[in-house]
Amino acid sequence: MKLKINGLQFSYDSTPVLEDVSFGVKKGEMLTIIGPNASGKTTLLKCINDILTPQKGTILIDDESLNDLSMTDIAREIGHVPQAGSKSFPTTVFDTVLMGRKPHGSWKPSEKDLEKVSNTISRLNLEHIAMKNIGEISGGQKQKVLIARALAQNPDILLLDEPTSSLDLKHQLKVLDIVSKQTENGISVVMTMHDLNLAARYSSKILMLKEGNIFAAGDVDVLDPKNIESVFEVKVDVIEKSEGLMIIPEEPVS
């Protein structure tokens, strides 16, 4: 198991957000965490990346506890794509992706870092905007740049927090194609998502969170009408198609 989480508990002051969460992710697996707002999805990702420290539980990467790893070691193992970048001052796309090499570098980027960044930009087809200011590019391009930054970290695990939330349909598919492709290289992906159809289409595993607890976990089949109604309080119809499951919302449960 590449990533293993046992009995994770986290609360903000006295408000519990995660209660006894346990699961594992294998090498090259793509796990999508779904759940309603405030179910603890983003908090869970932040705990995995050591941005937040859980009150209880263990997080293991290749059987090694996160507590035994330095911040730099963790950054070499885990690439994180936040919901939105928040750069205060102008910087180029290249310099943004170059930040991903920080965990591998010392005080300034090496020639190898520059080559790695150029290659990552090329692989994600961002070459036409490489020297543009990050403030001048579209939301879809920005998301791809943040994924490029995380890939430049050369991680074994990629965490993505709602990577398609602000994208149009075309860019949603493009971004998820890129992410999906990374699993072929052995990268394990954990992402949060609101779109159940995209989750069904791209994920190899689903984890359903409800009020800080795992409600259901397993293959895409867990996305059945009963589970979805219990977690999201919405009646849905699930149709099996050749491309995967199609989930059609019907009405909220009163």
């Binding site: 932040k46 990346n49 050591d50 941005i51 330095s70 911040m71 730099t72 963790i74 950054a75 070499r76 885990i78 690439g79 994180h80 936040p82 970048g85 928040s86 750069k87 205060s88 001052f89 910087t91 310099d95 943004t96 930040m99 991903g100 920080k102 965990p103 970290q153």
Partner: peptide, 15 residues
């Protein structure tokens, strides 16, 4: 430079 991308991003990049 990394810090300017936000506290959480900077932590995720080992800062």
């Amino acid at each position: 430079e990394v810090l300017d991308s936000g506290d959480e991003s900077a932590k995720a990049l080992g800062i």
